[in-house]
């Protein structure tokens, strides 16, 4: 996937069954963000793979002051890519 400068990883072991899963997001390359990033560190949150969309949580991060509005797309994309990977991996385990 395209390097957004933002990393999103699992913050817990994926047992392949739970729909809400803990993720951790942090900025690896602040130069890729449009807005000024104040060093907040790693942000851990729970995301529901079945019912939630990445745009919602990205907007909540902006609302909470972690990022500026101009970066909501990059945050959202970073989360979406990771979520797609988790879902793909689960699908593979189920079908294989």
């Amino acid at each position: 996937a395209e390097d957004t400068g933002v990393r999103v990883e699992l913050a817990e072991e994926d047992d392949g069954t739970k729909s809400p899963i803990a993720l951790r997001l942090w900025v690896e390359d602040a130069k890729k963000l449009k807005g000024k990033y104040k060093d907040s560190g790693a942000i851990e949150f729970t995301f529901d793979l079945e019912t939630e969309v990445s745009e919602t949580v990205a907007q909540e991060m902006v609302d909470s002051g972690f990022f500026l509005d101009s970066d909501v797309k990059v945050i959202s994309k970073s989360i979406r890519d990771r979520v797609a990977l988790i879902k793909w991996r689960r699908q593979r385990i189920v079908s294989g």
Binding site: G41, A42, I43, F45, F66
Partner: peptide
């Protein structure tokens, strides 16, 4: 700094903690 908890009005909890050195971009 230590971990901080930020709760969004929609109810989601964000736990903020320092990024471990080893996870910063070095690859």
């Amino acid at each position: 700094y230590s971990a901080a908890l930020v709760v969004h009005s929609a109810g989601r909890r964000f736990i903020v903690s320092p990024v471990p050195e080893s996870r910063l971009k070095d690859q």
